[in-house]
Design a protein around this nucleic acid. Structure first.
Lengths: 273, 273
DNA sequence: TATGATATTAATAAAATGTTAATAAGAGAA
DNA sequence: TTCTCTTATTAACATTTTATTAATATCATA
C-alpha cells in the first residue's frame, strides 16, 4: 500500500488489526519504620519497610501484593497511573517516584498477558495521616544472600514470612542478574522479584544521590540519618566515615534533641545543592 | 461477585472488557566506529555509533528511527522481541542486551497509544557480516550540553543532523531528569529521547561495570581501549589513571601490534573475574 | 641515523578513606 | 551530689586510592 500523507495513512489504519495487551503499574513504596521502643541506638532497630496490600479477589486471592492497578490507555501515562495509585493508598501526592523496571513474563498473570511497569516511591511515614484498609506496612527484618539466593523476611507485626529469589548473573554482564522465584507463598504475581529490584535500586542509589532525605522528616539527628543508611545498606558504618559522606548534604540547625538518656544531639536539615 | 476458585473466576473473566494497548520494543544499538584513516592516535577519531533505520511508511515516513517493532503479546516477552529485532537487523544473536526505560507519552505515536520498552545493545562491529537495507551506522560526532540543553550531532557520512533535548531536573531528585524535545527534524517518534537515555546509561555504567568489552574485539591495545573510554565518557583520560582503572579487567597476551609508525603496543584481552 | 609518534612505567604529590581513640554531655542510679 | 551508662562529636593518625609529572622505550619513516 502506498499512502501520500499521514492523514491518508491514518484513515486506513485500524489498531484492532493487531493484538494488544493490558498494562499495570505496581509501586514499591518504601519508608523507614520508627520503632520508639528504646531510647538507645544500639537497641533500637530502625528498618526499611514496604507497603503491601491484601488481595480480595482472584487471582492470588488473600495474598499480599504491591499497590497497583491497570492503566487506562486512553487517558493516563504510566506515571499518571503511579501517582493515582499512590494517592489512593497513601493520600500523598507529591513524593519521590521513579520508574523501576518493566516486568513482562508471559504467564505472570493467569488471566491474560499483562505487562507491569513498576515504580519505586519513597516516603516519610510521618507525613501519613490515614490508615488504608487492607494495606499494611511490612518491615524488612532480614535480607540474606547465600549462594546466589536472596531470602527476604518481612513482618507487619501479625504476619511474618520469607520469600527467596535466585539471582543468575546475565551473560556479558558483571552487574545484571535474572531473578527467579525459589520460594514464595505469600506474594502475588512476581511481586517478590519487583520488591527485590526495588531494594537493590535504593541500595545502589543511596551511594550517589540524595534520595535518602525523601524518607526523613525535616529535622533529624546524624545518628538517626546514619541508622537509615545502615538499614538500607544492610551494614554498620563507622561514624567518621559516615559523617564525611553526608557532610555536604546536611546543614546544622540550632535545635537540639534532648531527653534521650545521653548527650543531646544536634538536629540537622537536608541542604540541596 | 464472589468466586470460590481461580478457575471459576477465570471462566467468568473477559479480557476484552478492558481497554488495551500496543507495545513496541525499540533498541539503541551502540558500537564503536573504527576509522582507519590515520595511524596516529591523536589524529584518528574513534567514535560511538548508533544504528538507525529509515522508515518507509507512515507515520514519520522517510525519517530515521531506532530498530524496533511491535511485540506479539501471546508469544513473546519484550526481551524476546528485542532479540528478534536484533537478529533481523544485525544477524547477531548472542550479544549484550539490557532493558533501558519504558517510554509512554500518550501522543508519541499518532496512530494510537503505543508504549515502548527500550533496550540498549552493545556490539563489536567486527562481528557484523551483512549490511542491512535501509539501516545505517551514525557516528555520534558531538554531544554538547549547555544550559540544560543537550545537542547531539550524528552523521552516517552522507547525512549529518543535530537534535536537541532539554533536561529538567525532577523534583526530589539530584540525578533524574525529564527529557523533552527542543529540536528534532530527523528522528521519528521520541527516539531522540531514547538515544540520549541510552548514551547516559552507557556513560554511567562504563565506570562500574565491564560493558565496554562488549564493544571490543578479542585482542586490543590499551591505547585502543583508552580511546573507547574517552569516546564514551566524552573526555580525555590521563594514561596512568586509565591504566589503573582497567588493570584488573585485562590481561597481557604475548602478541604485539606493529606497523603503526611508533613503538609497538602489546595486545591485551578481557579478563573476566 | 635522527626524528616523530605513541607505549609503558616509575616516582612523587595530593586527596580520599579507614581506623583508633579522646572528649563531651544529658539521664538516671547510687 | 557524684558516678556510670550511653551516644555525640571531633581530632589525630594510618592507609589506600587517585592525580600528576616526567622519564625511558621502541618502531616507522624520512
Amino acid at each position: 500500500m502506498n499512502y501520500n500523507s499521514l492523514e491518508e495513512f491514518l484513515s486506513d489504519y485500524n489498531p484492532n488489526d493487531y493484538e494488544r495487551l493490558s498494562m499495570t503499574c505496581d509501586i514499591v513504596i518504601f519508608s523507614v519504620s520508627d520503632q520508639e521502643s528504646s531510647n538507645y541506638r544500639k537497641t533500637s532497630r530502625k528498618m526499611m519497610s514496604v507497603l503491601l496490600v491484601k488481595r480480595d479477589e482472584y487471582p492470588y486471592k488473600d495474598m499480599w501484593c504491591l499497590p497497583g492497578g491497570f492503566i487506562n490507555p486512553s487517558t493516563e501515562t504510566l506515571e499518571d497511573a503511579a501517582k493515582r495509585i499512590l494517592k489512593r493508598e497513601t493520600n500523598l501526592s507529591d513524593i519521590y517516584l521513579e520508574q523501576l523496571y518493566t516486568f513482562d513474563g508471559i504467564k505472570r498473570d493467569p488471566r491474560m498477558r499483562v505487562v507491569s511497569c513498576s515504580y519505586v516511591a519513597l516516603i516519610d511515614k510521618k507525613k501519613l495521616k490515614q490508615k488504608v484498609v487492607n494495606a499494611s506496612w511490612f518491615d524488612i527484618i532480614d535480607i540474606e544472600e547465600k549462594d546466589g539466593i536472596v531470602s527476604i523476611t518481612v513482618s507487619n507485626g501479625d504476619e511474618t514470612f520469607t520469600f527467596s529469589i535466585k539471582k543468575t548473573l546475565r551473560k556479558y554482564s558483571t552487574d545484571r542478574y535474572d531473578f527467579s522465584t525459589v520460594k514464595n507463598n505469600n506474594l502475588a504475581f512476581d511481586h517478590d522479584l519487583v520488591i527485590l529490584s526495588g531494594i537493590e535500586r535504593i541500595r545502589n542509589k543511596i551511594n550517589y544521590t540524595d534520595i535518602v532525605f525523601n524518607m526523613m522528616g525535616e529535622y533529624f539527628t546524624l545518628g538517626e540519618l546514619q541508622q537509615v543508611y545502615e538499614v538500607i545498606l544492610g551494614k554498620k558504618l563507622l561514624d567518621p566515615a559516615f559523617r564525611r559522606i553526608i557532610a555536604d548534604k546536611v546543614e546544622k540547625t540550632d535545635k537540639m534533641k534532648t531527653g534521650e538518656g545521653h548527650r543531646p544531639s544536634r538536629l540537622f536539615r537536608y541542604r540541596k545543592r
